[in-house]
């Protein structure tokens, strides 16, 4: 695998959080978290999707967000990344308020939203270049990084194929490449391993771990507890729009496996009776 250089140079200038919001971390000593959510809430009609989520994601952590279907993971991450305007609360990326200074905040992060389309009439390399050029990057830098990324994600031989003809897993990978092109300080990945084959998943994991090792921060949402337990150092359990537990993986699982702890926290799931007819064939 090609070693990826994630230079810190392109991250853009930072600015102080806007007035009117409490600074994410008022005490003098602790470092500014890579992502700080403050009272995020969102309602869709009668349904409260996210009900006041506050969370600190330390810089340099590999952070997992787990939760059952419909827990509000995607809604929370959309609000944290500037895709969905929250009803209440806000998010800070390295101290920059996403909703006060969206352009500065967006320079600091790369995002992989779940369930959105891509500009799929572009070829793979065109799509990744497009993402870079939209961010105002230099053409030569974009070109060399696109080659590196496609090679690292094992998409080299499909670089010229239109994205519309890609498989689901290849689309995830090309979208990930688009999120990485500007060497962000924070990566927010919504379900990055969905429909990705095991070889590619290992490949992506390697890239992400290397990225964290060089000082970047990664947030992934996932259903796969096992993966989160092995891969992440921090985890937050989200259900019904609230954070049930958050901290280092060892703190949250408290000796049990993450999966058992998750089921205990979220509740239900132990009842396996009631399907006797399934054994009658």
């Amino acid at each position: 695998m090609t070693a990826l250089e994630f230079g810190r140079g392109y991250a853009g200038r930072m600015s102080a959080p806007g007035p009117g919001y409490p600074a994410p971390n008022p005490s003098p000593a602790p470092p500014v978290p890579a992502l700080a959510l403050r009272g995020l809430a969102k309602r869709f009609g009668d349904k409260i999707a996210v009900n006041g989520i506050s969370l600190d994601v330390p810089a340099g952590s590999f952070y997992g967000v787990v939760g059952p279907n419909g827990a509000g993971k995607t809604t929370t991450l959309s609000m944290a990344t500037g895709l969905l305007r929250p009803d209440f609360g806000t998010a800070f990326i390295h101290g920059v308020d996403v909703w006060e200074h969206p352009l500065e905040a967006k320079k600091l992060m790369g995002i992989l939203p779940d369930g959105v389309r891509l500009f799929d009439r572009l070829s793979g390399e065109q799509l990744v270049s497009y993402a870079g050029l939209l961010r105002g990057m230099d053409r030569a830098v974009v070109q060399s990084r696109v080659q590196d990324l496609l090679a690292a994600l094992d998409l080299g031989k499909d670089a010229g194929t239109l994205v519309v003809d890609y498989s689901a897993g290849m689309r995830k990978k090309i979208a990930l490449a688009s999120a990485l092109i500007h060497a962000p300080r924070l990566l927010v990945l919504d379900e990055p391993f969905e429909s990705v084959d095991p070889v590619s998943a290992a490949n992506i994991r390697g890239i992400l771990e290397q990225y964290v090792a060089s000082g970047g921060t990664v947030i992934v949402s996932s259903h796969v507890m096992d993966l989160v337990q092995r891969m992440c150092d921090h985890v937050a359990v989200v259900a019904a729009g609230r954070v049930l537990a958050a901290g280092t993986v060892d703190e949250v699982r408290a000796g049990a496996s993450l999966e058992d702890r998750f089921v205990a926290l979220v509740g239900g799931g132990t009842r396996t009776g009631g399907l006797e007819w399934l054994r009658t064939f």
Binding site: L103, V116, R117, L118
Partner: peptide, 12 residues
């Protein structure tokens, strides 16, 4: 369609 997310995410 939702591919517009890329424009939004890159902050163009």
């Amino acid at each position: 369609n939702t591919a517009f997310a890329l424009h939004l995410a890159t902050g163009v």
